[in-house]
Structures are given as C-alpha cells and as structure tokens.
C-alpha cells in the first residue's frame, strides 16, 4: 500500500515540478526544455517501479525497472553479441546497400522524365505497403544468418529513400538551372554543384526515415528464423520462456541503438546542410 501512495505522491510531485518549470520566465531556455522531459521520464519510471511493487505484479506480466536494469547489467555480453548480429551485421549492411543503391538509381533515372513519372507513383505506393511481410520469403532465399535480415532491410528502406531522393533532385527551380546553363556548366557540373546540394535536405529526410525502418526490418525478420543470436531472436525466445526482464533489456538496447542511429544521421545532416533554413539559427 505504501508503494501505491508513493507512486501517487511521485506523480503529483513530478507534475507540480514540471508545471512550475514550464511556467517560469526561463522556460524556453535549453536547460529547462531538457530537464522537463527527463523529470517526466524518471517520474514514469518511479511510478512504474512503485506500482509493480505495490500491487505485487508478477514478473511474467511486467518486471520493475530495477529488475530490468540489473538484468541489463549482468547480461551485457549477450546483449552485445545480439547487438552486433542484428544492428551491425543485419541493419547496417542492409541500410548502406539499400540507401546507397536507391540514391544511385534515383540519380540515374533522373535523366529520364518518363521513368521518373512512372517510378514516383509506383515507389510512393510501394513505400506504403507492409514490406515486413517479405521477411519469410527473404529468409527462405538467403538463409537464417544476417544476409537475409540485410535483404529485408534493403527491401524496406529502398523505396522511401528512392522517392525522397527523386523529390530532392527536383528541388531546384528553373532559374537556378538556367543560371548554371548560362555558365555553360555540363550535366555533371550542374549535378554536383547545384542539384545534389539542393537535394540534401530531402535525401537526409529519407535517410532518417530509413533508420527506424532498418531496425524494425532486422528485428522482425529474426522472428522468422535466425541463428541462436540476435535481438529479434532473443526477444521471441525469451518471450516464450517468460523471461520478460531479458526482453525489456533487449528493447532498451533497441531503443538506444535506434535513437543513437537517428541522432548520428541528424548530426551529419546538420554538418552538411548548415545552409538550409531549418538548420540555421539553432
């Protein structure tokens, strides 16, 4: 009972602190806009912990955050092996192959308006389909190891990346291209000096969308068969054994990997598109 009261008190306290912080004069400062979500996160974690303890929720339903943290700490080696298998081998190689080939193909078909008109609607359409469903087929074709996961990732990231790059390459207007023509710039000079830089914001939009898709693809493909390592494999087997603390530890890894991956791409974007209005003045 004490734990339940503690949860309630923590909730009220957390809300009160955030409410006060949000309505101070400094509320738009960087420090406070960073502190408020962190306080909110810790409040949620504490309420979770207190409710699980207060109501004696069995671990097979939901483990307390401290249990998850201690499981995380003692199984770092397993988590690392899974991370390498799923993220580095499966997701990253698929991401690089998929995004790279989509980028190159977008530039190649850019010279033909006919192909563009044909591929843009088809690509948009395919990007909205449940591509994860190809996982069983690709696992059958490429075997259980990371190659099949990379193939699923390629299938998932290819079309969003293609569509975004094509839209980016169309971002320059007539005047700018005419200016390049008056400089008597060749096709490649125009491409490298004008159109690719102008396409960068859209390209990075595609790259950022693809980060999450890559991780989802690699994890879900492991549900269809995998060697005895990998994040998706661990999640599905530990769920079967009701080892939910391990499942949550893997999910923590996935969350950290996902946001770090996204953050890395966003940092590169900031370095390369510093001139764009959305990046200036920050």
């Amino acid at each position: 009972m004490n734990w339940v009261i503690a949860a309630l008190v923590c909730w009220i306290l957390g809300y009160w602190i955030n409410h006060r912080l949000a309505h101070t004069r400094l509320s738009n400062s960087r420090l406070i806009s960073l502190a408020i979500p962190i306080i909110f996160g810790f409040t949620i974690l504490f309420i979770w912990e207190a409710l699980v303890r207060g109501f004696n929720v069995p671990m097979v339903i939901i483990p307390a955050p401290t249990v998850i943290a201690s499981r995380f700490a003692v199984s770092l080696d397993i988590l690392w092996v899974d991370f390498v298998q799923t993220f580095v081998k499966g997701a990253m190689s698929g991401y690089i192959i998929g995004c790279g080939s989509a980028f190159v193909i977008a530039i190649l078909i850019d010279r033909s308006p006919f192909l563009q008109k044909g591929l843009l609607p088809v690509g948009n359409f395919i990007a909205a389909l449940p591509i994860v469903g190809t996982a069983p087929i690709l696992v059958m074709w490429f075997g259980f190891d990371w190659q099949s996961k990379a193939a699923v990732v390629v299938a998932m990231v290819f079309f969003p990346m293609l569509v975004n790059t094509m839209q980016g390459l169309a971002a320059t207007d007539r005047m700018q291209r005419d200016l390049m023509a008056t400089y008597s710039a060749s096709y490649f000079q125009t491409l490298i000096k004008l159109r690719l830089p102008a396409a960068m914001p859209a390209v990075f939009n595609g790259l950022k969308i693809a980060t999450t898709l890559a991780l989802i693809g690699a994890i879900v493909a492991e549900f269809f068969g995998s060697p005895i390592k990998g994040m998706g494999f661990r999640i599905s087997t530990e769920v079967g054994k009701l080892g939910l603390d391990m499942v949550w530890a893997e999910i923590t890894v996935a969350a950290i990997a996902g946001s770090a991956f996204y953050g890395a791409i966003a940092l590169i974007e900031r370095g390369l598109t510093f001139w764009h209005p959305s990046q200036r003045g920050q």
Partner: peptide, 29 residues
C-alpha cells in the same frame, strides 16, 4: 504547456525507436 514540454520530446523520440519489437511480448503477456 507542462504536458507539451514533458511528453512531446518523448513522442518525437518514439518515432526513432523500433517499438514494433515489443509486439510479441504484448501478445504473450
């Protein structure tokens, strides 16, 4: 405003996380 500043960053961050991974757990639990 308090809700905005506490929840919104998490809602945006959730888009970068493969939350689909907890699907099997929900089913089994």
């Amino acid at each position: 405003k308090a809700m905005d500043m506490s929840v919104m960053p998490w809602a945006i961050a959730s888009q970068t996380i493969p939350i689909l991974a907890i699907a099997p757990m929900i089913i089994v639990v």
